[in-house]
C-alpha cells in the first residue's frame, strides 16, 4: 500500500437481504489532515454511494457520527486517520445497538430512556414567567460538566452492562438526569430519582468506567452515576428517618 493510500474496512449490513454484517474494503487517497468521517464521505462520494452512515456537523457537536473505529467507540469526525494504528481503519456500527443499515444503528430505545429521566427543567409552579430565574456562576458550575453531553451514545456502546442488560437506563441518560437535579431552578429531582433508584436504573451500574474513557466531551457519566447512587441513598434514608423532608 502506498503512503498516499489508506484501507478502510467498513462493516456492511443490508437489511433487505438480512444475514450477518460483512466487511468490505476500500482503498482511498490519504492526507494527514483527514479524519475517519472524511474517509467515509470519500467512499460515499467516489466509490460506493450505497454506504450508509450518519453525520451532520463535522465538529464534534451534533453527536451523530459515532462508530466503533478500530474496536473503540469514537466520533468519526474527531478521529484522525493518522492517529490510528498502522494498517487498515476498521469501522463498525456502535456496539450494543441493533443495526438498521451499514453503520446506522437504531437508538429509539435510548430516546425512550432519555425521556424517562425528564431531561429538561421541571417546576412545580412556573409562577411569573416575566421574572428572571437568577443563576450565579457557582450554580452553573454545579451542572456544567453534565450539560456538555451531546447524546452521541458512545458511552452506551462502551458499556458492557448495557450490552448484557439492555433495560439498563445507561450512562448518558443518568448524567443528564444529574445535570437537571443539580440545577437550582429545577423541582424534578424526586421524580428522576424515583426512576433511577430502581433495578434497571443506577444500581445496574458496576462502575466499569469505560463510558467516561470514551466520552468525547469529558462528561464523566460513571462519576455521575455514583453521585446519583449517593443522592438516591441519602434521599431514601432521609425519607425513612424524616418523612416529609425536602426532595432535593
Amino acid at each position: 500500500m502506498a503512503d498516499s493510500e489508506v484501507v478502510f474496512r467498513v462493516s456492511r449490513y443490508r437489511p433487505e437481504s438480512g444475514g450477518r454484517p460483512t466487511f468490505q474494503e476500500y482503498r482511498i487517497p490519504y492526507r494527514s489532515d483527514m479524519v475517519v468521517l472524511d474517509g467515509l464521505n470519500y467512499i460515499k462520494d467516489h466509490l460506493d454511494p450505497t454506504l450508509t452512515f450518519r453525520w451532520s456537523c463535522r465538529m464534534g457537536i451534533c453527536g451523530s457520527c459515532g462508530a466503533d473505529v478500530n474496536g473503540r467507540p469514537r466520533l468519526t469526525c474527531g478521529t484522525y486517520i493518522r492517529d490510528m494504528r498502522k494498517g487498515a481503519v476498521t469501522v463498525e456500527p456502535l456496539s450494543n445497538f441493533p443495526i438498521l443499515k451499514d453503520l446506522v444503528v437504531d437508538f429509539d430505545d435510548f430516546l425512550d430512556k432519555l425521556a424517562s429521566v425528564r431531561p429538561y427543567i421541571v417546576r412545580k409552579d412556573w409562577g411569573d414567567l416575566s421574572k428572571e430565574y437568577t443563576q450565579y456562576p457557582e450554580d452553573v458550575d454545579a451542572y456544567r460538566q453534565q450539560s456538555l453531553c451531546i447524546n452521541c451514545m458512545l458511552c452506551y456502546a462502551a458499556c458492557p452492562v448495557f450490552g448484557a442488560s439492555p433495560e439498563f437506563v445507561g450512562p448518558a441518560a443518568s448524567a443528564l438526569a444529574l445535570r437537571y437535579i443539580r440545577d437550582t431552578r429545577d423541582d424534578g429531582a424526586a421524580e428522576r430519582l424515583a426512576r433511577l433508584n430502581t433495578k434497571t436504573g443506577i444500581w445496574e451500574c458496576t462502575f466499569v468506567g469505560e463510558c467516561s474513557v470514551v466520552c468525547p466531551k469529558e462528561v464523566d457519566p460513571a462519576a455521575a452515576i455514583q453521585t446519583l447512587k449517593f443522592l438516591a441513598t441519602t434521599r431514601h434514608m432521609r425519607r425513612l428517618l424524616m418523612p416529609g423532608s425536602a426532595s432535593r
Binding site: 437489511p15 433487505e16 474496536g71
Partner: peptide, 23 residues
C-alpha cells in the same frame, strides 16, 4: 421486508482492552 440486525455483545468483550480486563 426490512430486517433489523439485533444488538449483540461480543462474547469476549473483556479482552477488547486492558481496562475491561482490569474490571
Amino acid at each position: 421486508t426490512v430486517h433489523e440486525y439485533p444488538a449483540r455483545r461480543r462474547r469476549v468483550w473483556w479482552l477488547r482492552n486492558r481496562r475491561y480486563l482490569a474490571f
